[in-house]
């Protein structure tokens, strides 16, 4: 673990460089290799006649932006959820928020004539909010003031996820013509998005990141035990609610862009906590950089495992994340 300010600054700079490097790698590597010179030319002096430049600008650039945004968003959402619930297993995927957003997007895009990015995003927010409220209602301890029990919360999340996925599967079976569309949302993918559809969602991510930055001090206090938090005069209700709002925005926007991508919100905060400790002023920016890098790297690697097919990036993250979940779950106590 990095302890000194100097070490942490170096670590954060390295994470930022990793994010940039994986962004460039995601643009350059793939079934059709693009040289760095072509890459530079496609931004400095775009020539529509060159296949390489066309691939970079129309195909890989939106894809890399989506991967970076979604990875960063999910990782930060996961870190926030783990802090607020004090539960090492909390993340948007496991607590059903992604599934809620997915179901609403599927209903909107495959069964209602809604295709505009903003309407899908609004649907995703609604779904994420519904799921988050349901999981909170179901996962609270019955006794007053007992807070949120780790196991109960995870089970509530899993049950809610099962509920939403079952409904999505039912819709799919009733309306089999939309099989491909629905599978896209269920499996999660960062491909086939145009720059136009990213535009409306981008400000939401930025807004959520800024709001997160404003909350870091309060989040640090929330990590102490409840009596201490009250003694310090922190209003926990407001911070919890605001954090919940940010999580819904980040997870909803991520699902609206890329469907259900699990485990990013679980893996990255644990990795980062191991490196930077629990101070949210370091934890959150590092989650942002490393979350983006993880999804970019996973997406780039997914192009090479069984060419010419691509593995859905959600499957890649699950392959990395599931063993970590099992490790965390088989420890004695699943609290942070």
């Amino acid at each position: 673990m990095l302890t000194s300010i100097y070490g942490k600054t170096t670590g954060l700079t390295a994470s930022l460089l990793l994010l940039l490097a994986s962004f460039v790698a995601s643009l350059a590597l793939g079934h059709y290799d693009v040289s760095l010179a072509t890459l530079r030319a496609s931004f400095m002096d775009f020539d529509p006649a060159s296949t390489g430049q066309l691939i970079v600008v129309t195909e890989r650039l939106p894809r890399a932006i989506v991967a970076a945004l979604v990875g960063a968003g999910l990782a930060v959402a996961g870190a926030l959820m783990q802090s607020v619930t004090r539960n090492a297993l909390a993340s948007p995927g496991i607590l059903g928020i992604n599934a809620g957003a997915m179901l609403f997007v599927v209903v909107g895009s495959a069964f209602l004539p809604l295709q505009a990015p903003w309407s899908l995003t609004a649907l995703a927010f609604t779904g994420a909010t519904v799921a988050a409220s349901l999981v909170y209602l179901l996962g609270r301890e019955p006794a007053k003031g007992a807070g949120i029990a780790p196991l109960r919360l995870v089970l509530a999340g899993v049950a809610v996820t099962a509920l939403f996925i079952a409904v999505a599967q039912g819709l799919l079976v009733i309306n089999q013509e939309r099989f491909g569309d629905v599978m896209f949302w269920l499996a999660g993918s960062v491909s086939s998005r145009s720059l136009d559809s990213i535009g409306p969602v981008l400000p939401l991510f930025l807004l959520a990141f800024v709001a997160t930055a404003l909350l870091t001090r309060q989040l640090n206090i929330l990590g102490l035990d409840d009596a201490m938090v009250r003694a310090l005069g922190q209003s926990t209700g407001f911070v919890r609610l605001a954090t919940g709002g940010i999580v819904v925005v980040l997870a909803g926007a991520s699902v609206a862009l890329a469907g259900m991508i699990g485990f990013v919100g679980l893996i990255v905060p644990h990795l980062v906590r191991g490196l930077f400790g629990r101070d949210h002023r370091w934890l959150l920016p590092a989650c942002l950089c490393l979350g983006g890098s993880l999804l970019l790297i996973a997406d780039t690697a997914a192009r090479f495992i069984i060419p010419p097919r691509e593995i859905p990036v959600g499957v890649m993250t699950a392959l990395i994340g599931a063993p970590l979940f099992l490790y965390l779950a088989s420890r004695r106590s699943p609290s942070l």
């Binding site: 979940f325 779950a329 088989s330």
Partner: peptide, 10 residues
């Protein structure tokens, strides 16, 4: 249960 949940998602 938790290990089962993890296996289910994998």
């Amino acid at each position: 249960v938790l290990v089962g949940v993890g296996l289910a998602s994998a």
